[in-house]
């Protein structure tokens, strides 16, 4: 088979993907750039309005609230997820009996579908009959009062906190990636550290963390992308991010604009702003990681 024919065959085999990518991804992406400058309700012709969608977003208090909720959630849930998954991975990288069992046990929660998880958490955090409040009433009766124990998901002071806590439930995925990274750390480095008299803290700081730093960077970037797009859990758990839109996140407002309010142009503008935020944070992560991430090569 000559070179030209080989290329043609390869392209032919890849063509389903090319067609799918062009029709279902590339075209909508390009169209959404244009539509973000339009008043577009899906069923009527798009009307070009210049930067109005973007300037309206600046004055939109719900947009600001959704953005602020998302930033707070990301700032808390992302480090929490990184620390919990790394901690679990390090624990599961030790030589203890029944390791396979523990690894499965800690990975299993991340297999629970998000909708099922949301319903489960509603049972746990329910203000009246929830497991948590039943325990608190049993064991902390001395703080009984009209505000104790709180209705966790119905109180704007706690609802975000609960959601951040729940986010750690999915740490199993990142944990598996960390575990693979940890097992790649050359044993001789630990032996050398041991010979030098390094303790656990010192070994972790000077050997483990630097050696798995590319994995940490990977999980950080994936975490930024994932947490900034949090949707399913708050969407199922709350009605419009209630109470008081305290768990109303960026993608929920984007969804509502597109499919409930029929303001697709506005939603496209929101989509592009989110894309730029994620892109900038990812680039920043790469920039900051230059000095701290060590690649084997």
């Amino acid at each position: 088979m000559n070179k030209r024919k080989e290329t043609l065959t390869a392209l032919l085999f890849a063509s389903p993907w090319f067609v799918g990518f062009t029709v279902f991804l590339l075209y909508p992406i390009i169209a959404s750039i244009y539509l973000s400058f339009c008043d577009y309700s899906v069923l009527r012709p798009a009307v070009f309005i210049g930067l109005q969608n973007y300037s309206d977003l600046i004055n939109d208090s719900i947009f600001k609230q959704a953005l602020s909720n998302t930033v707070i959630y990301t700032a808390a849930a992302l480090p929490l997820g990184l620390v919990v998954s790394l901690g679990l991975a390090m624990l599961l990288n030790t030589k203890v009996k029944g390791l396979a069992f523990y690894r499965t046990l800690f990975y299993m929660p991340s297999l629970v579908p998000l909708v099922a998880l949301a319903i489960l958490m509603q049972f746990i955090f329910n203000g009246q009959y929830g497991v948590l409040n039943s325990l608190l009433r049993e064991f902390l009766p001395f703080v009984h009062g009209k505000s104790w124990p709180p209705n966790w998901l119905g109180d704007p002071r706690f609802s975000k906190l609960v959601l951040i806590f729940i986010s750690a439930w999915g740490a199993g995925n990142a944990m598996v990636i960390y575990l693979a990274g940890l097992q790649d750390v050359p044993v001789q480095l630990y032996e050398a550290a041991q010979l030098d008299g390094a303790g656990w803290c010192s070994t972790t700081r000077n050997v483990t963390i630097p050696m798995i730093s590319p994995v940490i960077l990977f999980n950080l970037v994936m975490g930024i992308i994932g947490t900034l797009q949090v949707f399913t859990l708050p969407y199922v758990i709350s009605n419009q991010g209630s109470p008081m839109r305290s768990i109303y996140f960026y993608t929920m407002y984007l969804f509502d604009n597109a499919f409930v309010y029929h303001k697709m142009g506005y939603a496209c503008a929101m989509g592009w702003i989110l894309f730029i935020i994620i892109l900038l944070l990812t680039l920043l992560s790469f920039k900051l990681s230059e000095k701290h991430v060590h690649y084997g090569s």
Partner: peptide, 9 residues
């Protein structure tokens, strides 16, 4: 809080 918890139950 009491009303909100009652409603959630």
């Amino acid at each position: 809080n009491n009303v909100s918890a009652f409603h959630s139950g």
